[in-house]
């Protein structure tokens, strides 16, 4: 009798397993039939800026990003300047995603009326699945031209003296859904430097990260270490910037504190004249708005 009951239970379970497994087996069939796909990591950083420096991201294909960056004056500028509220430094920028791997941008900075133009190339994209790649690699190249009047009009001035260049190799990785990190060795070439003691070729090492504290808010921080003894005639320091990214529907707001005065890579690296310790801190924000210019093929 006992055996019969066992047998019955066993058979029942076996039958149950077969019907439940029929659909699982069909799923296996699908999995075997499916072509392997590559899962590319998206949104390593929310915008093309970690805080003030470039992130590994480029504008999405066919999309135009309008970036409005604003820095107030230094906090240590005293009550006369309302601790920086009276002054402002602005950069208006446009970026466009030409292809998946090429982005182009231009910007106008109120600091020395500087125009900057750049291209960023996404060489490698972090991915898993069929194609595995542990990190994203973006190369950033920029040219900046300041257009204020010559400081000394009596000497012979060349147009090329207005130009400086920045190149960055940005290596980034998204570790899980919350945390992203990048390192960015940076090379800046300044055509004309103030004194014989100053180097024309300046090297810095950038590192930046993002930590998502909610679905739409993240804390970002960024450090650009300026290797010493390259700029001697003027004070020049490494920069540290920290802030919050807040994402709404079509905008990303970045609110931050930084000791960098400039807003383009050339000036961030070479013209940061004060430190956090002496109160040379600027309150700033970036507002990015994205527009779809060319729709994906299926929607044209």
């Amino acid at each position: 009798m006992k055996i019969r009951i066992y047998l019955f239970v066993f058979l029942f379970l076996a039958l149950f397993a077969v019907t439940a497994n029929a659909q699982e087996a069909m799923m296996n069939l699908i999995n075997k039939d499916a072509k392997p796909v590559t899962d590319y990591t998206s949104a390593t950083f929310k915008t093309t800026r970690v805080v003030i420096g470039q992130s590994c991201e480029i504008a999405p294909t066919g999309n135009l990003i309008l970036v409005f960056s604003h820095h107030f004056g230094a906090l240590n500028s005293g009550y006369e300047n309302l601790y920086g509220l009276k002054q402002s430094q602005v950069r208006l920028g446009l970026e466009y995603g030409v292809t998946k791997w090429l982005g182009l941008g231009v910007g106008l900075n109120t600091l020395q009326n500087t125009w900057d133009g750049f291209a960023n190339f996404k060489i490698l994209r972090q991915s898993k699945g069929a194609k595995k790649m542990p990190f994203t690699l973006t190369i950033f190249g920029s040219t900046a031209i300041y257009t204020t009047k010559w400081a000394d009009p009596t000497r012979t001035n060349y147009f090329t003296s207005r130009i400086s260049y920045a190149t960055q190799v940005i290596l980034a990785r998204k570790f899980g859904e919350r945390f992203s990190f990048q390192i960015a060795p940076t090379y800046v070439h300044v055509n004309l430097v103030p004194s014989y003691d100053d180097h024309n070729n300046i090297f810095a090492l950038g590192a930046g990260g993002r930590f998502k504290i909610s679905q739409r808010v993240s804390v970002n921080a960024e450090y650009y270490y300026l290797f010493p003894k390259q700029i001697r005639s003027t004070p020049a320091y490494s920069t540290f910037s920290a802030g919050v990214d807040i994402e709404t529907g079509g905008h990303v707001f970045q609110i931050f504190l930084t000791n960098a005065n400039g807003e383009n890579m050339e000036t961030i690296v070479t013209q940061t004249t004060g430190t956090w310790w002496n109160g040379n801190i600027f309150l700033g924000f970036n507002i990015s708005r994205i527009f779809t210019v060319v729709k994906p093929k299926a929607y044209r």
């Binding site: 029929a22 590319y40 998206s42 949104a43 779809t292 299926a298």
Partner: peptide, 29 residues
């Protein structure tokens, strides 16, 4: 991906969510 067993009626789907394409890149993100 989908599969149907026309004898038993078993019907299964598998949808990779990242494969959804939107008109705007921002929507997709």
């Amino acid at each position: 991906n989908a599969a149907l067993d026309a004898a038993t009626g078993d019907f299964v789907f598998k949808v990779l969510l990242k494969s959804f394409e939107f008109e705007k890149a921002l929507m997709q993100e």
